[in-house]
Every structure is written in structure tokens, then in C-alpha cells.
Computed example of a mutant assay.
Amino acid sequence: MIKLLKWLSVLSSLGMLFVLIGGALVTKTESGMGCGKSWPLCHGEIIPSNITMELVIELSHRLVSGGVGFLVLLLSILAWRKLGHVRETKLLSFLSLFFLVLQGLIGAAAVKWGQSDFVLAMHFGISLISFASIFLLTLLIFEVDQKFDATSLYIKRKHRKGFYALTIYTLMVVYTGALVRHVNASLVCGGWPFCNNEYPLQFGYYNFLQWVQMGHRLAAGLIFVWVIIQFVIIRKSYSHSKIMSGGWSIALLLITIQVILGAMIIFTSLNLFVALLHALVIACFFSLLCYFVLLSSRSARADKKNR
């Protein structure tokens, strides 16, 4: 059974990545109305008669989401039954399914009735939480199978607070990035890192879209600095732990790539491949942060038992 769970969890994680990237592709190619205002069918037809590229992208995303939904449902049920004795299993099983269904409902509502840009920007963040939950459930299954040891790790209280804060802040920054896409503010600034490198401090001339773009850049830049500081702290305090030192090395690498990709979006005039890779990297980074939150929660529980 554990072997089946491992395969199922890996397939679900990879599938959820395709769902996440597919959603980003729908947004970036403006294919959200590729099937008209019909859901789950396309233009009210099981087999659409008028095939367009937008329809193919939107319908493919729906089909992949449905298939992954079935995998996640099966994974959640089996993990609950087989590993329900492990503290985090039931919560992660529930969250994996709940947020996957929630993002589907928001997508359906956007097709049927339309939504504001501020509401649609939440869609990507919900997808991130769904992917992170499935990813954590996958790690939990491999941990139970004793493929690596994370149970003996203890994270100090002051460092746990930093992990919690960084994870919440990252989700907020992700929202601002999604808002940039949904209000079509991706290319309102011709320069990088400033909106206009020749006049970098002329903030009074910014319009709303430029403020959205530059607000996201500033918020993302703070994450980059924050991760560098955390990396130095972790390397000094947990040099004996491969999970901590290795994990935060990966986190620093991912956020560095993310910053570079953010700049390349401007330099390449919103190249589709670069934009999709940008979405993929932040999904991996956020999921890694969530794993450290999970490990921190175990240390917090250990503190309570020792009081």
C-alpha cells in the first residue's frame, strides 16, 4: 500500500503542477473565455464544433484539472485510511482536496458570471496552497517510508517565527504578482529594476498600473533580501542538519532564479515561456517554505510537551 501511495502522491504533485501552470497559461494567453460562458462544457457542446487555440487551451486546462482532481481524491482517501495515525495526514488530505475544489469553483464562477481582477488574482494563490498541501502530503508519505529523517529535527522558536512570517508574506506577494497579470500591468514599466531607469525617483508621475507593478517589485525584492538573511542564519545555526542547510540553499537558489525571471519578463516583453517558468519557480519556493512551517509546527508541539 505504501508503494502505491508513493506513486500516487508523486503523480498528484506533478499533475497539480500542470494544473497550476495550465491556469497561468490560460491567464497569460487570455483564453479564459475560450469556451464562452459555458461550464463544464465548451459553448454548450460536449465536442466543440468551432475549434480555436483559446478553446484548446481552456478545455485542456479543464480536462487536466478534472483528472488531477480524481488523483487527489484517491490519494486523500488512501492516505487518510493508511496514514491517519500520523498527525499531519488528515489535515493535509483535507486541504489538498478542499483548495483544489475551491480553485475549480472560482474558475467556473469566473466563466459563468465574471469576477473582478482582485478576486481573480486570488485564484493563483489558492492553486499554490493546493499544490503545497499535495507536495507536503507526498513528503510525509516518503518520510513514513523512512526515505529520510526529519522527525529528529528541532527548530528554535525565534527561527520558527521567521518561517511563519516569511511564508505568509510570500503568499501576499504572490497575490500582488497575480494582480499585475490580471490588470494587465506586466509591461507598464519599460525599465528594470525601476519603472524608468533614467528618472528612478519620479513616483509622483506613476499611474495606478505602474504602482501595482512597482509595488510588486518592491515586495518581491524584500523576499529576496529576507531569504538571504535567513540563509545566513540557518547555515550558522543548523550546519549539522542536511534538511535545514540543504533546504535553505535550495530556497535561496529558487528565489534568485525568480528575481532573474522577473527581470527577463520585462526584457523579453512578456515571453510566454519565461512567464510560465516564473509561475513554476514560485510554486516550488512557496511549497518549500510550507515544508519548513510543517517542521516548525512539530518543534512547537515538542516545546508544549516539555513544559
Rank of each mutant, 00 (worst) to 15 (best):
I2P: 00
K3P: 08
K6M: 11
W7I: 08
W7H: 06
L8E: 01
S9P: 04
V10S: 00
S12D: 00
M16A: 05
L20N: 12
G23Y: 05
A24P: 10
G32V: 05
M33E: 03
S38Y: 11
P40C: 08
G44V: 04
G44E: 08
E45N: 04
I46V: 14
I47M: 03
I47N: 00
P48D: 00
P48F: 00
I51D: 04
S60C: 05
L63S: 03
G67A: 07
V68A: 02
F70A: 14
F70R: 01
F70T: 10
V72Y: 03
L73K: 10
L74P: 01
S76A: 15
A79V: 12
R81V: 13
V86M: 07
R87S: 04
K90P: 08
K90A: 04
L92A: 05
L92P: 01
S96H: 02
S96A: 14
S96R: 07
L100W: 04
L100V: 01
V101H: 06
Q103E: 14
L105Q: 02
I106T: 06
G107S: 03
A108T: 01
A109E: 12
A109L: 14
V111Q: 06
V111K: 09
K112R: 14
G114Q: 11
L120I: 12
L120A: 11
H123G: 04
F124W: 09
G125W: 03
A132K: 09
S133G: 02
F135I: 01
L136F: 02
T138S: 12
L140H: 10
Q146N: 09
Q146M: 01
K147Q: 14
T151N: 12
S152A: 10
Y154E: 10
I155N: 00
I155F: 00
R157G: 03
R157S: 14
K161S: 14
G162V: 04
A165K: 07
L166M: 15
T170G: 08
M172G: 13
V174Y: 05
Y175V: 06
G177P: 13
A178Q: 08
V180Y: 09
R181S: 15
H182P: 12
V188W: 07
V188P: 07
G190R: 11
C195L: 12
N196P: 05
E198F: 06
Y199R: 12
Y199C: 07
Y199I: 14
P200Y: 10
P200D: 13
G204T: 07
Y206V: 06
W211V: 12
W211A: 12
Q213C: 08
R217F: 01
R217L: 03
R217I: 00
L218Q: 03
L218Y: 13
G221I: 03
I223K: 02
F224R: 03
V227G: 09
V227I: 15
I229F: 15
F231I: 04
R235N: 13
K236S: 06
S237T: 15
Y238T: 15
I243Y: 00
S245Y: 14
S245P: 04
I250K: 02
A251V: 07
L252C: 11
L253W: 09
L254R: 02
L254E: 11
I260Q: 00
L261F: 12
G262L: 04
M264W: 09
I265G: 03
I265C: 01
F267L: 15
F267Q: 05
N271A: 07
A275M: 10
A279N: 09
V281Q: 03
I282K: 01
S287T: 02
S287W: 04
S287P: 08
L289Q: 13
Y291A: 04
A302D: 13
D303S: 12
K304I: 14
K305S: 11
N306P: 00
